[in-house]
Design a protein around this nucleic acid. Structure first.
Lengths: 222, 222
DNA sequence: ACCTGAACACCGTTCAAGT
DNA sequence: ACCTGAACACCGTTCAAGT
């Protein structure tokens, strides 16, 4: 019980306590996500960070899942949608998707989240709207546009989610890489031959190539 | 090992109790996953299904994460790798990826699992080895093969994981679809125009097109 | 070596009660 | 309307103790 109602001194002794709101909850939650990842996030920790009990959050949020969806959409507000002046449709599409990936990689767990929750928040919709528009601008017929947009965003999200999964493993000396490097040339000749190429490149380089592959593929497939 | 030692009567009083083993644990766990999905799975339920306490499982399994990785790899044993006689590399690659998707969709939560855990089990490796081999057979140079294999499997896994996420939402009348259908033509003209096409097709039809797009794109992108 | 009861340190969610 | 203490029904994991 910390409410001293009208006292000024009480404010000074507790200067940071803001009133609860969806916004404050989202900020606190994204803070925890940034610092501790998806594993470290819990409703109870969010409540504790806001100096209250877990039950209090249910006034503003339906449940954990919907909190996660709100967090994702708030984070997606940082995705930059290039203006029409910034080049051709293909260049702008690529820029947009790179921005999307950058945002998803900027906070751990966001990739996983994007794949798990079907966000229909305003920022998700803004992104979808833009991708659909750019593909249509590129002259791709409407039957392909819907599936193409799905593939493109899925690829970005999947790369981010995979990166999250990789980060989550703090095994001694990257055990997955170790395993692949130790693969026998007799039983798995292709893995063995390509073992060095399998881990080449950053997520950014990979997504650049992936986007090219996808756009070229979409243009060449009826 | 089904050692029932010597007593017959003890078996009759406890007829179903098999001795613990990694195999029995995996079977019980996959059973629960099939019936209740990833949300419904817990170490404690697996233990209960095997008529023991949760602590007992730790003799056979490091922790929940490694149990999940073992479950995934066991399930991937059902993926069919087409023999060399079954057609050209492209056809065989497509068949393999379809089989992969089919397996991932056959048990709820498997798609999510495949994306979350970096399995280096024998069946994952068998699949990777085959995909690498087929791409090389197709004349794709080694620099592209590694990334291409990654893209292809990521696409399959992402489609399965997305399907899982969609299944997990039992919202009244598919709220995501509802939301998109209700989008204003003024603020989101492209979404509005394509609203019917966005949900067209089964995962199987989509993955068929996606695989074509990816292979065509890979062939056309240096 | 294998198994387990009990405990530890957590969860999300609900609900009656307070303001 | 907003907030909360307390409880409920769960979790994964550890550990001393048993066989």
């Amino acid at each position: 019980m910390k409410t001293q109602s009208s006292k000024i001194l009480s404010r000074r002794s507790r200067p940071a306590k803001a009133p609860l709101s969806v916004d404050a909850i989202l900020s606190a939650a994204l803070d925890i996500l940034t610092r501790e990842g998806l594993e470290g996030l819990s409703l109870r920790k969010v409540a504790a960070a806001l100096d209250t009990g877990p039950a209090s959050l249910y006034v503003y949020v339906d449940n954990l899942d919907s909190l996660l969806a709100l967090m994702l959409d708030r984070a997606l507000g940082k995705v930059v949608i290039p203006s029409r002046a910034k080049g051709g449709w293909r260049e702008r599409l690529s820029t947009l998707l790179h921005s999307y990936l950058k945002v998803l990689l900027s906070i751990p767990g966001l990739g996983q989240l994007a794949l798990t929750t079907m966000s229909s928040g305003q920022n998700s919709l803004r992104g979808l709207e833009a991708v659909l528009g750019l593909l249509r601008e590129g002259g791709i017929d409407d039957d392909r546009v819907a599936w193409a947009a799905d593939m493109l965003s899925l690829q970005v999200v999947a790369v981010a989610a995979e990166q999250d999964a990789r980060r989550r493993q703090a095994d001694p000396l990257d055990s997955f890489e170790q395993t692949l490097n130790a693969i026998s040339a007799r039983t798995h000749p292709n893995i063995h031959a390509l073992r060095e190429k399998l881990f080449l490149g950053t997520p950014r380089e990979r997504i650049r190539w992936a986007i090219d592959v996808l756009i070229n593929g979409i243009l060449h497939t009826p």
